[in-house]
Amino acid sequence: SRHTFEINGERWTVEGVSEELKEILRAAERASNDEAERLLRLALKLI
């Protein structure tokens, strides 16, 4: 499935992501810059 999210003013669209990964991306959208970066690094390990 496709998911579009915005982090630090940048929009991203990813396809074929699991519900778990979507949850991480949604958390990154709400997080501070440092926390968002940490969550994105974690998410990339899952891809």
Score class of each variant (00 low, 15 high):
Ser1His: 15
Ile24Phe: 04
Leu21Ile: 15
Arg26Pro: 00
Arg41Tyr: 13
Glu37Ile: 10
Glu29Pro: 01
Arg41Cys: 10
Thr13Gly: 02
Arg11Asn: 09
Thr4Ala: 03
Glu23Gly: 09
Ser18Asn: 09
Val14Glu: 01
Glu37Ala: 11
Ser18Leu: 05
Glu29Ser: 07
Asn33Met: 13
Ile24Lys: 01
Ile24Gly: 00
Arg26Met: 14
Arg30Glu: 14
Lys22Tyr: 15
Leu21Trp: 05
Ser32Trp: 07
Lys45Gln: 14
Glu29Trp: 02
Arg26Ser: 13
Ala43Asn: 01
Ala43Met: 06
Lys22Ile: 15
Arg2Trp: 14
Glu23Asp: 13
Arg26Gln: 11
Glu37Ser: 07
Lys45Ser: 15
Leu25Lys: 00
Glu35Ile: 08
Glu20His: 07
Leu21Gln: 03
Asn33Thr: 14
Glu35Pro: 01
Arg30Leu: 14
Leu21Pro: 01
Gly16Glu: 10
Asn8His: 06
His3Phe: 15
Ile24Glu: 00
Ala36Leu: 12
Glu29Gln: 08
Asn33Trp: 15
Asn8Val: 03
Trp12His: 04
Leu25Cys: 03
Leu25Pro: 00
Glu37Lys: 12
Val17Trp: 08
Arg2Leu: 15
Ala28Pro: 01
Gly9His: 02
Ser32Ala: 11
Lys22Trp: 13
Gly9Pro: 01
Arg11Gly: 04
Glu23Ile: 09
Arg2Ile: 15
Val17Arg: 02
Arg30Pro: 02
Val17Leu: 12
Gly9Cys: 03
Ser32His: 10
Glu19Trp: 08
Arg30Cys: 11
Ile47Arg: 00
Leu42Arg: 05
Ala43Arg: 00
Thr4Asn: 05
Lys45Cys: 07
Thr4Trp: 13
Leu39His: 02
Glu10Ala: 08
Ala43Tyr: 12
Glu23Ala: 14
Glu15Lys: 04
Arg41Phe: 10
Glu15Phe: 10
Ala28Tyr: 08
Thr4Phe: 10
Glu19Asp: 10
Gly16Trp: 09
Asn33Asp: 08
Gly9Glu: 03
Leu42Pro: 00
Leu40Lys: 04
Arg30Tyr: 11
Thr13Arg: 04
Arg26Asn: 11
Gly16Arg: 05
Glu10Ser: 08
Glu29Tyr: 04
Ala43Gly: 02
Ala31Leu: 09
Ala36Glu: 03
Leu40Pro: 00
Ala31Arg: 02
Glu20Arg: 06
Leu40Ser: 01
Ala36Gln: 12
Val17Glu: 05
Ser18Arg: 05
Gly16Tyr: 14
Thr13Ile: 11
Asn33Tyr: 14
Val17Ile: 12
Leu42Trp: 09
Ser18Pro: 04
Arg2Phe: 08
Thr4Val: 14
Lys45Leu: 08
Arg41Asp: 07
Ile7His: 02
Leu21Val: 15
Gly9Asn: 04
Asn33Arg: 14
Glu35Gly: 03
Glu6Lys: 05
Glu10Ile: 15
